[in-house]
Design a protein around this nucleic acid. Sequence first.
DNA 1: ACAAGCCATGACAACCTTGTCAAGGCGACC
DNA 2: GGTCGCCTTGACAAGGTTGTCATGGCTTGT
Lengths: 340, 340
Amino acid sequence: MNAKVTIHDVARMSGVSIKTVSRVLNREPNVKAATRDRVQEAVAALNYRPNISARSLAGSKAYLIGVFFDNPSPAYVTDVQLGAIGRCRTEGYHLIVEPLDSEGDVEEQVAPMLATLRMDGVILTPPVCDDARVLAVLDAEGVPYVRLSPDRDLDRSAYVRMDDVAAAYEMTAHLIKLGHKDIAFIKGHPDHGAAHLRYDGYAKAMAEHGLAVREDRVAQGWFSFRSGFEAAETLLAGEDRPTAIFASNDDMALGVMAVANRLRLNVPETLSVAGFDDTPGAKVVWPQLTTVRQPIQAMAAAAADLLLSGDLKGEDGAAPPSRLLDFELVVRESTGPAAG
Amino acid sequence: MNAKVTIHDVARMSGVSIKTVSRVLNREPNVKAATRDRVQEAVAALNYRPNISARSLAGSKAYLIGVFFDNPSPAYVTDVQLGAIGRCRTEGYHLIVEPLDSEGDVEEQVAPMLATLRMDGVILTPPVCDDARVLAVLDAEGVPYVRLSPDRDLDRSAYVRMDDVAAAYEMTAHLIKLGHKDIAFIKGHPDHGAAHLRYDGYAKAMAEHGLAVREDRVAQGWFSFRSGFEAAETLLAGEDRPTAIFASNDDMALGVMAVANRLRLNVPETLSVAGFDDTPGAKVVWPQLTTVRQPIQAMAAAAADLLLSGDLKGEDGAAPPSRLLDFELVVRESTGPAAG
DNA sequence: ACAAGCCATGACAACCTTGTCAAGGCGACC
DNA sequence: GGTCGCCTTGACAAGGTTGTCATGGCTTGT
């Protein structure tokens, strides 16, 4: 019942050589249409599937794409995997996931794996995508890679990212359009490039709409719930309060919501709250959070696409290709018209 | 710099045959200690890593473990991957992740993949672990698998699960010890076996402590935030309220918290709320949620261990091996002494 | 001291597919 | 009509490792 079917069986059944079967399987040119059909019938009849080990041993492809991450937001990782698989599966590629421990000896984790697996490409998520050690090993082993939302060294490799500045700009504009003039901002972890970009978008929107950014309305956060909570405690102390708070990620925004609840400030009647990222938690509060959705699956799919289409070098020494994807403003119930 | 190092190079350098190198690499017996050392030195000096494709083509192992899931909670999937990798990496195994679409033709997704990859084993997470079609294909292809928290057919394969009954019992007992006598319960999705087990644990604890379960204190939920929200609206309407609500997962518990906030019921002073699962959201509310933590990483590691140790059949027709892991009660701020 | 058996090792085939190169067939072009 | 060149196909080696089996040396038991 389960005897392994090899390419020889297909060749015999369709009366051609194994090489021709191989040609059909790999969509190589120079096969007569009639032959091709006959082979494909045999493949279907025998339910033949090429053995991936033999393929990669004989040929140059491993049919494996790696996904590296470290201490990730689970939702992010899952989305990356789903997006990448979507593009890979149709072409017979599979996904190898490799959690890394940046605290430890990354080289020792990455190098053996690259040497044994000979993957066709790797997708790097933050913060691994900015780890010089990882990039060095990849370069040394000659494994192509695409980075997702890298912070620096953008010319070093192909990458895919979202326009954080524009997204933060739009969110701020959304609040302004609702009538808010006194909009506070909670910054993210200064080591993350996105934190700066988001602040820039906020500042730009304020400036372009003729609104001043009061220094005491900008708080430093660390992208954590707790840091959002503490920032909100400061921002909302006393009578002179902003009418809206834009936290540069959802976890911090949820911290703001918690403080608002505690202080009995109604959201959004008294205080509007906006987040960034559209994490699962954004829908698991009441009222649900207005936020920005990163097209993570699409970004991962784009990364896989760059890897599979194989033009990562950039024509003639030009910068490697990159893609900028559109964000989506998700307006839910936590933002509303400014009071008064 | 980067010429591929093969087993031949190691053999030449250490003055033995490639077969002996292979023996050392695979920890086979019958190699003199001195020879072994010499070979290992050469391996280290040349930085040799065996090629996984060649290995699996020649031998019987693929050094690949699959993880199948469908529409999962991201945190769950990530934990499974981390747990499984922890056990796999030391033995040179890698993880292939395969999201499945149970709505579509699962056979068509699974069968080709098993045939091409020839994985050494597969870890199945709910709900895939109870999908008869998937199990049938795995059996047909002869690929060993371990199921995580399966609902039914427990004798069919090896599995790993947690004691949901005991965990729900303990949580209920925790509330009772705090002085609560009027404890409401929100059930989960009736299609999930865990939903029933958790209710059973609750009911058992109530009975053993001589407390009656009022029918109007048990609400049907669906494991979603919204269903928890709605159940809480009913449970908390009017003056005759329970002093504690035990929701059988965190999402529903967060729904309860949202309603409590809305009704200005202080948690935990007026109302204690308990959840189940310890999702990331549990820490992203105020007060943070008392809940039950499933040892998901440990469960996945145990599954990988069963796969790698390879005794999945059960001795002499006995039931396949299974492991029952301990839960952990995570007491945070959302539960407190009963009022009055 | 001799047979039996175990230990350590090596030669070689096998695993299944792709890459290389050669060859036959056929139409086009001069 | 002959030559060139493209399309189509096949034979065979290559890819790096493990499995099988054979070999020779050394130990054990009598």
